[in-house]
Structures are given as structure tokens and as C-alpha cells.
Amino acid sequence: MKKPITGDINLLSFNQKERKKRSIEEKKALWGWVFVLPALLFFMVFSFYPMMNAFYLSLTRYNLISLEPPKFIWFKNYVYLFQSPEFWNSLKSTAIFTLGTFLLLLVFSLALGAFIISRKKGRTLLQMIFYSPALLSSVVAALIWFLIFDPRGLANQFVNFVMGTPGVDHKWLATAGMLRLSTIIVYFWKYIGYFTIIFVAGMGNIPQSIHEAAAIDGTNKWQHFWLIVFPLIKPTTLLVSVMAMLQCLKTFSTQYLFTTSGAPTKPINVITLNIYNTAIRDFRIDRASAMSVLLFLIMLVLSWLQFKAAKERDISYM
């Protein structure tokens, strides 16, 4: 008597179904690749290739205007940069600007985000008002502020009015400290709204039930913010801190416009400005590429540190 073969038939049909299913998944995956391909190609051509090319150029001696091909010199450009007082000054200027601006942006955008989300009316209007400077081009923003910081401009008039010091020139665009402060003010003014909106969105995503539970537990506003809201918007805080830091490290337009309009270069000669001048004014694209690679590494390490620090303090109420 033959054994019934029902199970085998079932297994067979299962395998066939599985194969069919897999082939559908494979097809889906293939289409996935098709859809992703333009973006990948775009990234390869406009981001990855320039990055690789910049790294290659950083190992050569190459004049931007010359017809002579690049000459391979290994790490001489890097050695030069580490011995160059101008490069160290650029690192210092970038560090001062980034620390000053990034911390202010982070703290104030968080505070403003909390303020806006706590309003029952006028949220949209407030967001629009804070965000509007971000719509201006950086060059236009820097131009407006250049006029404000002119010795006869609004900045001196306002500070002298508030402090009761008529006729004092606070040298917004002249002395090193004031010039650094001026660039920080411009950047802060331009980007505070942008990061505030990100915080508003992050805070808006917290489920209402959590707010209600906290209210039932009797938290006051201060406790509610620091013990409930703040830990829950950690991913947003991380996003803002990484974005703000990278944005600050890449700052260029304000410093460029200020220095070309008469402000001293040295205090605000951030790495990006140094890269621009080295490549475009001095034609040394090789050294400019080496600086770009170093800036990239700095950004990479600092972002990684931020992610690592955020992971160590992971909190979840879900």
C-alpha cells in the first residue's frame, strides 16, 4: 500500500509558492534599484566623484589655471598645512565661530520651540516670523547686516541708546572680538527660525496621551518639559545639533562678504574662506583640496562623537 503523498504535494506547492513569492520580491527589489538609481548616480557624479577627486588632488601639486597635469607629491600638502600658521588660525576661527553659534542655536531654538508649542494661538504666525530670515540668501543677509554694523549704522545707535554711551564706536567690523560676535549674530539671526521649526515638529510628534499621563501624575511645567518632553525629543535634539554643527563648520557667505567689504580677514578666516581664497585667488586647488579633506574629517569625527554621546544617554518611556 502506497503511502499517501498529500504532505509532499503540499510541500511542493509551498516551495513553488515560495519561489513565486521570492521572484515577486526580487522583482520588487529590482524596481527599487531602478527608482534609487537616479539618486545614486546623482550622488556618485556630484558628491562621491568630487570627494574622491578632491582627495586625489590633495596628494598632488596642481595649479588651477595651469595646463600642466597634477604632479603626485603624496602628503606634502598636509605637512604644509600643519606647519602653516594661517591654517591653524583658520581652525581657531572656525572653532570659535562654531562653538559660539552652534551652542546659541541649539539652546535658543529649543527654548523658542518650547515657547511656540506652548502657545494655543498664533503658532503658525510665530513660525513664519522666525523662519523668514532663512528665506533670504546668505549674501543679502550679510549685506543687510553690514549696513547695520557700519559705524554710523543701527547697531551702534541701538547699543549707545541702551547703554547711554552716545558717540561710542563699538567697532563691530573692526576689532577681532566684535567682528567674531558680528558674524555669530548674523548666522544666529538667519538660522534660529529654521532649527526652531524642527524642534516644533519634534515636540508636536509626542503623543497627547503622554502629556495627559504626566498631568495626572501632577508634574509642573518645568518638570513636564525636562522630564517628559526633553528626553522624548532626543532624536530631534540630536538631529538639530548635528545639522547646526555641520552648518556652522561650513559657514562661508557672511565671512566672505564681510572681508570683501572691508572687515579684517584674520579673525574670521574660517576654513571654508581659506579654501576659497587658496583655490580661487591663489590658484592652489591642491592645498585647498587638502583643507577640504581635513574639514570633511573634522565634520565626520564630530558627528560620530555626537551620535555616540547621544546613544549612551538613551532614554525611552515607550
Partner: peptide, 21 residues
């Protein structure tokens, strides 16, 4: 000079140093 613009930037920095800093 091939590096004329570079030299002009360096002169600019020197003048800014004495005048403003």
C-alpha cells in the same frame, strides 16, 4: 605677477592689522 592677487590680499591683511587691530 602670477600671484599678484594673493600678494594684494596679504597687503590687505597687513593694513587691516595696523589700522583695525
Amino acid at each position: 605677477h602670477e600671484n599678484g592677487y594673493q600678494f594684494e590680499r596679504y597687503i590687505k591683511e597687513a593694513i587691516e592689522d595696523v589700522m583695525l587691530s
